[in-house]
Amino acid sequence: MPPSLVIFDCDGVLVDTERMANQNLAEMVTELGHPMTGPDCQKLFMGRTLEDVQRKIEELTGKTLPADWPEEVRQRDLERFKAGVPAIRGIVEVLDRLDAAGIPYCVGSSGKYRKMRTTLGSSGLLPRLEGRLYSAEDCARGKPAPDVFLLAAQKMGHAPETCVVVEDSVPGVRAATAAGMRVFAFVEDPACDREAMTEAGGILFENMSDLPGLLLSTP
């Protein structure tokens, strides 16, 4: 049977923001005297909350960052995103197929609501997802803890074991697995850690056009 609910991560799955956000983060970390590239940041921090990222950067640099540092990162990201964020190629067709099959879907993200509404709004996807957005800002723990996916399932009225998650990060795959949900890992980006995603329990796929077939045939 197909899943009763599909939970999508946001960045890198619905909207193509990961490269922009990781380049911004790399510039900010480099300004702290610890040179990093966008792919470096993607490998180390992708899928985590900025509060978790801050703790890890403090470990790397030996510096204590101000309490509002995550908000500074978010503000810089939002300024970049306002210029335009494209939807992931093929995602509109995926949502169309789920609608046609009568399978509900929602979003479970580490990002805050303000960011999701900015990026999804810029991409044109927000009208399809408004009212079905769930953020780690409402949870005690961010990914790789399962909290946001369990919250999404509860709010949408579905048992975790009947849900499927679509992710593009190792922490996200781990979170979905910890929630008892099957997870498809989108690995179109060459910087994705495919081995780690597989080890975490992800079912890898490279083309978004393949996802409807995978979802609709999920046992």
Rank of each mutant, 00 (worst) to 15 (best):
L129N: 09
I103C: 05
G180C: 08
A196T: 11
A153M: 04
S209H: 12
N207C: 02
G180A: 12
G102P: 02
R74A: 14
P160H: 03
L133G: 02
I203L: 14
L126M: 11
E195N: 10
S110W: 08
K155Y: 04
F184P: 00
K82V: 06
V165N: 09
E167V: 13
R182V: 13
A196I: 11
V164Y: 08
G90Y: 04
E161W: 13
L129M: 10
T198H: 13
V85D: 02
D77W: 15
V173P: 03
P160E: 10
H158A: 14
A185I: 01
S123P: 05
V85E: 05
C139D: 09
V94C: 13
S169L: 08
V165K: 13
A191C: 08
P70Y: 04
V94P: 00
S135L: 05
E188D: 15
K155F: 01
H158N: 11
V166D: 03
T177P: 00
V170N: 03
R76T: 00
E206P: 01
P160S: 06
E195C: 02
S169Q: 13
A136Y: 06
A191Q: 14
A159F: 00
A145I: 11
L65W: 09
L120W: 06
D77S: 13
R117H: 13
R174Y: 00
A196Y: 10
I88Q: 10
V187R: 02
R89M: 02
M208K: 06
T177R: 14
A145K: 04
M197E: 11
A178Q: 12
T198P: 01
M116R: 14
P146N: 08
A159D: 15
I88L: 10
L125A: 09
K155D: 12
